[in-house]
Amino acid sequence: MSLITPDFGLIVWMTLIFGIVFFILAKWGFPMITDSVRKRADRINSSIKAAKEAEERLRNLAAEQSEMIEEARKEQARILKEAAASRDRIVEQAKVQAQDEATKIMDHARTQIAAEKESAMRDIRKEVALLSVSVAEKVLKKDLEDSGSQAEFLDRLVDEISE
């Protein structure tokens, strides 16, 4: 058989066999393999992307965290400062209030004392007056036992009143 003249029978067989093989492989062979590989490749790609995103997020998270800590520290300092200020203010206020209260109590006490003193003085005066009246009574009783001195005393009294 000549090498460079294609044999008709072999062409027919080759067409038939290659056609069948192609049909079978194109239907059940290669698409199965290539699709699976493609799916896996897609999966790997998406996984890598997801991992990258997660890493990125993690990095952002760390930055966010440190930011939050910084903020918290600032807040702490602010609160501490405020607390100190408000403490000072409260103490100040309390001092003022105490002073006021003390003054009020002192005033009250003073007026009380004054009132007490007044009433005591009044009592004493009343007592003294009563005492002096009774002394005077007793003196008068003794002095006016005689009628002459009675008249004399009457006269003096009249004088005194009339003056």
């Binding site: 090498l3 003249t5 294609p6 044999d7 072999l10 062409i11 080759m14 290659f18």
Partner: peptide, 11 residues
């Protein structure tokens, strides 16, 4: 064989 390669080329 040229018949085989001929068919492949025809495809």
């Amino acid at each position: 064989n040229i018949a085989v390669t001929l068919v492949l080329a025809l495809f």
